[in-house]
Design a protein around this nucleic acid. Structure first.
Length: 473
RNA sequence: GCCCCGAUGGUGUAGUGGCCUAUCAUGCAGCCCUGUCGAGGCUGCGACCCGGGUUCAAAUCCCGGUCGGGGCGCCA
């Protein structure tokens, strides 16, 4: 199984049927003339017969070629075809001869194949392959990424990217249902973004410019403009020299922003969305999870199977105050006001293994656009913010919060954080004509997929990752 | 940016100064088999990251470089 359901796929210039259609509906198709196409995953048989195991995006099917059933030159060419070459087969659907089974074993269910009357080699694959699509030998991530076009032909990798598409679709589906509309913000920005991170400089005609680190300020402007509830799924760029399993310099951020809402309201949106994604995957995409598990099972040593455990909502809220308490009680060295490091997050994960929110961070640790209520103080009397994180185990999935809608406070925050308000007039001006209280969050799509697919590195679930040392392919 | 580790056929590995014209698997090439299906059997091909050094002798030790891995930091 390759995992795609071909229901609704129309015949194309190159095939009348997908392979899955024939393998699953073979009984109805026996005797029918068909044209199929795919990659040659294995070519077996010598002498006068040839078994060609074909793979397309939907599944597998064997084509059976006989020397005396077709043009001999073509037959010989197919028989000596290299793995992964693409072939088109014209022939007739037939039931396969049943395989030999040990004495006393039940006969397997009938299987189908296409008996070829002609064949056309579309594109022969060079040998050897830089990485084996079906080989059992382990392949290192770096080799895989250098040859992503072949890596992607491996079933479990293909399944991960099918899952990615599903996750985004279910996420969209849920937000649309809650009244959100999709938007896109510019990725080329003039300067003075939200600060706190390094940006990639570029030249925009005669003007210096940067790649956007976040849609944050723009989705807020959309809310101030009355779009009420928006989301964006798009790239963000950070010029940080980090080198970890969970950071990339270009990543896809899943962002929402919502008017007339506080931090708790958007945490609700998030947990309902994640719950919908997990439920939908569990209900509809078990086949993709199975493909990943089939691969995990045959690894040496075998990897534990992954399962889609639908998280119950609401997710636990572990306030920053409480988090510090937990870390300290477990012997972690942290004081109020410190960031929660990866090893500290491990300690929290001992009590909250799955999804959990960490709300109410110290205001001084949060960006200038985060809202604070002057009456809310932490255990040491310091100002708390309405910023929150969503973690899964040790890993941060999301950062979000209620936003500061009071323009005078916003400008003070900018000054407090060492930024110049005059650089932000494109943004602060949006708040001068009546600003609704609002809140939102940004979710790392790849990090969420790591959780779902069991990948140990974000690079696994990003098609063409960009990190500090990789800009190709 | 810091600490630690590594680099051997296309891919993934064994190897701790002479036993290495280098192990195994997979792959590739060829041969045998007219229903294979984890195909099988036989034969063959193919590698010590780069530059310097130590030594009678280096895949192996030392130095530098490049690339990679793990951990951390940095990071809405």
């Amino acid at each position: 199984m390759v995992g795609r359901d071909p229901t609704g796929w129309k015949p194309t210039a190159f095939r009348t049927h997908t392979l899955a259609e024939i393998s699953t509906n073979g009984a109805d198709l026996v005797g029918e003339a068909v044209i199929i196409a795919g990659h040659a995953e294995a070519v077996r048989g010598r002498g006068g017969v040839c078994f060609l195991m074909l793979r397309d995006g939907t599944g597998y099917l064997q084509a059976f070629l006989k020397k005396d059933g077709m043009d001999e030159e073509t037959f010989l060419a197919v028989q000596s075809l290299s793995r992964e070459s693409t072939v088109q087969i014209t022939g007739e659907v037939a039931q396969k001869r049943p395989p030999k089974v040990p004495e006393g074993s039940p006969a397997p269910p009938p299987e189908y194949e296409v008996v070829a009357s002609s064949a056309q080699i579309m594109s022969a694959a060079q040998t050897p392959l830089p990485l084996g699509v079906t080989d059992k030998v382990h392949v290192e991530l770096d080799t895989r990424l250098d040859n992503r076009h072949l890596d992607l032909r491996r079933n479990h990798i293909n399944a991960m990217f099918q899952l990615r598409s599903k996750v985004l679709a279910y996420g969209r589906e849920h937000l649309l249902k809650e009244g959100f509309q999709e938007m896109n913000s510019p990725k080329i920005i003039a300067s003075a973004s939200e600060g706190g991170t390094n940006l990639f400089p570029m030249t925009y005609f005669e003007t210096p410019a940067f790649l956007s680190q976040s849609p944050q300020l723009y989705k807020q402007l959309a809310i101030l403009g009355g779009l009420e509830r928006v989301f964006e799924i798009g790239p963000a760029f950070r010029a940080e020299e980090h080198d970890t399993y969970r950071h990339l310099n270009e990543f896809i951020s899943f962002d929402i922003e919502m008017a007339w809402a506080d931090d708790e309201d958007v945490m609700g949106v998030q947990e309902r969305m994640i719950h919908h994604i997990w439920s939908s995957v569990a209900e509809k995409d078990g086949n993709l999870i199975d493909i990943i598990n089939e691969w995990r099972e045959v690894q040496e040593p075998p990897l534990n199977p992954i399962s889609v455990d639908i998280p119950s909502i609401p997710f636990p809220r572990v306030s920053y105050d409480k988090a510090i308490e937990i870390i300290q009680s477990k012997g972690g060295e942290i004081t109020w006001g410190d960031d929660i490091s990866a090893s500290d997050a491990d300690l929290i994960a001992e009590e909250h293994a799955g999804f959990h929110f960490i709300p109410r961070w110290p205001m001084e640790m949060k960006p200038f656009y985060i809202y604070h209520d002057e009456t809310e103080k932490g255990t040491t009397g310091e100002q708390l913010s309405r910023g929150f994180d969503l973690n899964y185990g040790r890993d941060e999935m999301t950062s979000g919060g209620q936003r500061e809608h009071r323009v005078d406070v916003l400008e003070l925050n900018l000054i407090d954080m060492g930024l110049d308000p005059t650089d932000f007039t494109f943004y602060t001006d949006g708040f001068r004509f009546g600003a609704p209280p609002h809140a939102g969050w940004g979710l790392g799509v790849a990090r969420l997929l790591m959780v779902l697919t069991g990948a140990g590195n974000v690079r696994e679930v990003v098609l063409f990752p960009r990190d500090r040392s990789r800009v190709t392919p």
